Simulated scan of single mutants.
Amino acid sequence: MANTGDSYVIELKRAHLEWGSYRHTNSRGVVYGEGYIPIPIDVAYSYSIYNSNFRRTGLGYNLFNCRSVDGYYNGVLKAGGSREAGDVYAKQFHGNGDLQALGNWFAHVNANIGDRVEVTWVSPLDIVIRLI
């Protein structure tokens, strides 16, 4: 589990900013405005960030209370996805039940390809995100 003060920084790419429309799969239709924050594999291992394949789910495992420094976003992010079938470590954060939640925040802060996002744990259950 992540500890207070743990953090990481990730550079945004087009796929992160346009998740619902810039994709290399036909698994579902185009949905504009979706976005996600990637989780590097070493961070997922070190901070024990799991997806729903893990034996336990919920706050601190695959769900995290989240707020943005600018105050625009305040909700729950879900850690999801995996690098290979059955892997328990998550590869991204997205809105829990709302895949446009981070896309809306990206639009609000005018995020662009090459910008960086910092994810910081303020407790094992709570994270803060900011565009840097």
Rank of each mutant, 00 (worst) to 15 (best):
M1A: 14
M1F: 03
G5C: 06
D6A: 05
D6R: 09
S7W: 08
Y8N: 03
Y8I: 02
Y8M: 02
V9E: 08
V9F: 02
V9C: 01
I10P: 01
I10V: 15
I10C: 04
L12V: 09
K13H: 10
A15I: 13
A15T: 12
A15C: 07
A15P: 01
L17I: 09
L17P: 01
G20E: 09
S21W: 10
S21M: 11
Y22T: 12
R23E: 13
R23G: 07
H24K: 14
N26R: 11
N26D: 12
R28T: 13
V30Y: 11
V31K: 15
Y32V: 13
G33Y: 04
G33P: 07
G35Q: 03
G35T: 04
I37N: 05
P40E: 02
P40K: 04
I41K: 13
D42T: 06
A44S: 12
Y45L: 12
S46P: 03
Y47F: 15
S48Q: 14
I49Q: 05
I49P: 00
I49Y: 03
Y50T: 08
Y50K: 14
N51F: 02
S52D: 13
S52R: 13
S52F: 07
N53P: 05
N53V: 11
N53T: 12
F54D: 12
F54H: 15
R55H: 12
R55G: 10
R55I: 12
R55F: 08
R56E: 13
R56N: 12
T57M: 01
T57D: 00
L59Q: 06
L59K: 08
G60S: 11
Y61V: 15
L63M: 10
F64Q: 00
F64C: 03
C66E: 00
C66D: 02
R67G: 00
R67E: 10
S68F: 00
D70F: 06
D70L: 05
G71N: 05
Y72Q: 09
G75V: 01
G75H: 06
V76W: 03
L77N: 05
L77I: 10
K78Q: 14
K78R: 14
K78A: 14
A79P: 11
G81K: 10
S82P: 04
R83M: 11
G86C: 09
D87R: 07
D87Q: 06
V88A: 05
V88S: 07
Y89I: 01
Y89S: 04
Q92A: 14
F93K: 08
H94V: 11
G95I: 05
G95C: 07
N96F: 13
D98Y: 08
A101V: 08
L102M: 12
N104L: 08
W105L: 03
W105I: 10
W105F: 05
F106S: 01
A107D: 07
A107Q: 09
A107C: 00
H108K: 12
V109F: 00
V109T: 03
N110S: 11
N110V: 00
A111Y: 00
I113D: 09
G114T: 07
G114C: 10
D115W: 09
R116V: 09
V119A: 03
V122Y: 02
V122D: 00
V122L: 06
S123D: 13
P124E: 02
L125P: 00
L125E: 06
I127K: 06
I127P: 05
I127F: 01
V128G: 03
I129M: 02
L131E: 00
L131T: 03
I132M: 11
